[in-house]
Amino acid sequence: MIGNDISYLIGRVSLKDRKAFAALYETSAPKLFGICLRILRDRSEAEEALQEVYVKIWQRADRYVPGNVHPMAWLAAIARNHSIDVIRARRPVATDIDEAYDIADPLMSPEEAVVLRSEGRRIDICMDELEPDRASAVRHAYIEGLSYEELAEIHGVPLNTMRTWLRRSLLKLRECMSR
């Protein structure tokens, strides 16, 4: 089913149309279930999460703004966010948003980073510009919903190194996408 039809169904769901909700579920549930299962790595937890995800979709359909984000990406974000919340509650990690953000990077000026215009490049091209181990960490983080601690362990680098890797990679990606 193409994005336009999913958008249409989400619009109908915002009017509490149960037939549209059933059709939306049929179309999107396998993908969202795949997301929950990949992040939670437990079938019964993934089933439970999928329920929560669709209750949220039912409740929040009116917040979807067509054209802002692809409808499937919007649905996937709800499934990822919920699954990540579940796994963070299960395996708590240190909070560090208030700690130092060492993101100095001589390659880019703040002005370049602020540029807000539509992306001329696809993420794949920009991922190729990152060093392979960092690109792999970025992708790994996203797909598996891993914390910095887990990523550091898997990639065999100190926690702070992993933080620096990902933060600088994010800035490089943003700069590349805005180019």
């Binding site: 329920q51 990406a73 974000a77 992708r139």
Partner: peptide, 27 residues
């Protein structure tokens, strides 16, 4: 929003998997 849209390409890595019928009934 922009990161969600940009990184959504990675969603291709997630395999679609049919959930059991009981899940929809519960929802």
């Amino acid at each position: 929003n922009r990161w969600e849209e940009n990184l959504s390409t990675f969603n291709d890595d997630y395999e679609a998997l049919q959930p059991p019928p009981r899940t929809y009934s519960a929802i």
